[in-house]
């Protein structure tokens, strides 16, 4: 079964073909990484899937439902969650309150004027904080948490909606190297345990090769390779475009001394 299906989506900005006919599919429990140099079109692809941008052509199917033209909030209700490159959280709340607010939002009663907001979901919020390893910080205001912890709270906020598909834009950006592995391990555990498909972009190759089940390599808007980490690492086209530069190094050195 497929939780996300992207068929042949394209997006052009002025003279630049940012995304050129990209297709992919994602299964529950799967960790799929999209990598590529800056300007390869990863962010645009993410925004096409996330609903921030409409594609020029192609389609996006979330959990079997046509979602190509749906706004962000409607995609969320189909089961898509998201984390952002720079963590998006509720800064004026404590961690506990923020997760309770996320649960309220996910349960969909935003116009209730006189019920109590905090309390009904307290136990559930505590459980989510525990799941991301932040139960100690429940009473701490989000605005005073260290950035690595903010990212974990953000993950708990995304999980509050019990997503079946999680988009993560550079999940380890801005984190200390030691925290990165731990976060990615946590995410993989969540994907496996909740049966959630995770699509992520990442700069940190260690995280990609250690935690992705499959890798999609984009260069100039198009997918040049896709497959298991070992296969991608060995792919000559990938080595040339992105990872290795064996031939180039020789050329550069020759230029320098020539």
């Amino acid at each position: 079964m497929t939780i996300l299906l992207v068929e042949n989506v394209s997006k052009r900005f002025g003279g630049v073909q940012a995304v050129a006919g990209v297709s992919l599919s994602l299964a529950p429990q799967e960790m799929l990484a999209v990598i590529g140099p800056n300007g390869a079109g990863k962010s645009t692809l993410f925004n096409l899937i996330g609903g921030q941008l409409p594609p020029d052509s192609g389609r996006v199917v979330i959990a079997g439902r046509e979602a190509t033209r749906l706004p962000v909030a409607a995609r969320a209700r189909l089961g898509m969650g998201r984390t952002f490159q720079i963590a998006e959280t509720f800064r004026s709340f404590t961690a506990q309150q923020a997760v309770e607010a996320a649960l309220l939002a996910a349960r969909g009663a935003p116009f209730r004027l006189f019920a109590r907001a905090f309390g009904p979901h307290a136990a559930e919020a505590r459980a989510l904080l525990a799941e991301v390893g932040m139960e100690e910080a429940a009473a701490t205001p989000v605005s005073t948490l260290a950035y690595g912890d903010v990212k974990r709270v953000e993950l708990a906020l995304a999980l509050a909606a019990a997503p079946r598909l999680l988009l993560m834009d550079e999940p380890t950006a801005g984190m200390a190297p030691a925290e990165r592995g731990a976060l990615m391990r946590l995410v993989r555990g969540l994907a496996r345990g909740r049966g959630m498909g995770v699509l992520f972009t990442e700069h940190d190759m260690d995280s990609v090769f250690a935690f992705a089940d499959r890798i999609l390599v984009m260069v100039r808007g198009a997918v040049i390779a896709a497959g298991a980490p070992e296969a991608v690492r060995a792919d000559p086209a990938v080595r040339e475009a992105y990872l290795g530069k064996a031939g180039l190094a020789a050329a550069l050195r020759a230029r320098r001394h020539g």
Partner: peptide, 17 residues
């Protein structure tokens, strides 16, 4: 060099030198 096609790296290196 980030995000540049490999063929552009050589002239860039030349310019820096």
């Amino acid at each position: 060099a980030e995000g540049l096609a490999p063929v552009l790296l050589e002239p860039l290196a030349g310019a820096i030198l």
